[in-house]
């Protein structure tokens, strides 16, 4: 495993991400990671808040597109995240905080389709917020807050 991380660290791509003296390498990748965070966590938070009872007048059917939006944010961050990891794999691959963040993200990702199904599976006519949907929404909110905090803290610890 360590050999693999070491090989990744010295690869041409990782070296470019880490060392290229252009804003199009590390700075732009990191900025895209922040934009993806805004889309994923932002869309998720807006939907969770609606399910939890804020903005009750917002009909549910026309905001289902927030789910594909969350996936766009997620894949943008999976790709940019892998690129950022490649720049510093030995350090990140052995940091507990990074493992904690990844685990939290995985829980959040599993919750995306669960929340969607809990709200939309019974067809447009019967759209209603069930206690199960509320539970998924509340847990989602907490999980993405935790993912954001642990991700941001990777810069410091």
């Amino acid at each position: 495993m360590m050999e693999l991380l070491a090989a990744l660290e010295v690869s041409a791509f990782a070296t470019w991400v880490r060392e290229a003296s252009t804003i199009w390498a590390y700075p732009t990748i990191l900025t895209l990671h922040t934009v993806g965070l805004g889309v994923l966590v932002g869309a998720n938070a807006a939907f969770d808040l609606r399910v939890l009872g804020f903005g009750r007048q917002i009909p549910l059917a026309p905001i289902e597109w927030l789910f594909p939006a969350m996936w766009v944010g997620f894949w943008l961050n999976a790709i940019t995240g892998a690129m950022l990891f490649s720049a510093d794999p030995i350090e990140k691959g052995t940091t507990a905080l990074f493992m904690v963040k990844l685990s939290i993200v995985m829980v959040g990702v599993v919750l995306i389709p669960l929340l969607r199904r809990a709200v939309y599976s019974r067809g447009c006519a019967a759209l209603a917020v069930t206690p199960l949907a509320k539970t998924f929404a509340a847990v989602s909110l907490v999980v993405w807050v935790a993912a954001t905090v642990t991700g941001r803290w990777m810069a410091y610890w």
């Binding site: 922040t34 889309v39 966590v41 932002g42 938070a45 807050v145 954001t148 991700g151």
Partner: peptide, 11 residues
Amino acid sequence: HFLGLALLVGV
């Protein structure tokens, strides 16, 4: 600051 960003941008 990043949580505030997500809340603001999302809504």
